[in-house]
Simulated assay, not measured.
Amino acid sequence: LRLILLAKETKAQIEPRLAPTELLSSFNFAYFTDDFKDKLPSKNIFFKILKDHPEIDPDSTLVIGTNLDEEIQGAENANLKSLWLAPKKDKIPISPRPTLHLSKLADLDFYLDLD
């Protein structure tokens, strides 16, 4: 299991906010908005990440996001599986259509095959 952070803020904005939590150390790689020319939902963002890490199989990649118009649409544009993290009361839209819809990230354990 590899975790890649894709922040919609610049590195200078996000690092100071996350530093006290040590959350950044949970990720194998981190990308920030200043690493790309394009903005989400451009598929080029995900294509660059996959190109940077050829060891990552696109067929086993899951994009986790809370924003349908950016992360989930970007995953769909790049033909990647996606998990929309949103309250259960939010109905899954016709488009973009996430692969999974969970209300809390802890429920993801059920879907992961880590053996």
Rank of each mutant, 00 (worst) to 15 (best):
L3W: 11
L3K: 15
L5R: 04
L5S: 10
L5T: 02
L6K: 02
L6M: 11
K8Y: 03
K8N: 15
E9V: 00
E9T: 07
T10K: 14
T10P: 05
T10L: 06
K11F: 01
K11I: 02
A12W: 07
A12V: 07
Q13E: 15
Q13L: 09
Q13M: 11
I14V: 14
I14W: 04
I14T: 13
I14L: 15
P16C: 04
R17C: 06
R17I: 10
R17D: 04
R17N: 08
A19D: 12
P20D: 11
T21I: 01
E22H: 14
L23V: 13
L23R: 07
L24F: 08
S26H: 13
Y31P: 07
Y31C: 09
F32P: 08
T33R: 15
D35C: 12
D35L: 05
K37H: 10
K37G: 07
K37S: 13
K37D: 14
D38F: 04
K39W: 09
L40I: 00
L40S: 11
S42D: 14
K43R: 13
I45T: 10
I45A: 11
F47D: 13
L50V: 04
D52T: 07
H53N: 15
P54W: 08
P54I: 02
E55K: 10
I56S: 01
D57V: 03
D57T: 03
P58N: 05
D59G: 10
D59A: 10
I64R: 09
T66C: 12
T66I: 07
N67Y: 07
L68I: 06
D69Q: 14
E70R: 08
E70C: 05
E71W: 11
E71V: 02
E71M: 06
I72F: 06
G74T: 02
G74N: 05
N77E: 08
N77F: 03
N77V: 01
N77M: 05
N77H: 08
N77W: 03
L80V: 02
L80M: 11
K81I: 00
K81L: 07
S82I: 03
S82G: 02
S82K: 07
W84V: 00
L85I: 05
A86C: 05
K89Y: 11
D90I: 01
D90A: 03
K91N: 06
K91C: 00
I92Q: 12
I92W: 02
I92C: 08
S95P: 01
S95E: 14
S95D: 06
S95I: 03
S95V: 03
P96M: 08
P96H: 09
P98C: 04
P98W: 02
P98T: 01
P98L: 03
L100F: 15
L100E: 06
L100G: 02
L100C: 04
S103N: 14
S103E: 15
S103P: 01
S103L: 01
K104P: 00
K104Q: 13
L105Y: 08
A106K: 13
A106Y: 01
D107Q: 10
D107W: 12
L108D: 05
D109E: 11
F110P: 00
Y111F: 15
Y111T: 00
Y111N: 01
D113G: 03
L114W: 05
L114V: 01
D115F: 01
D115P: 14
D115V: 00
D115N: 10
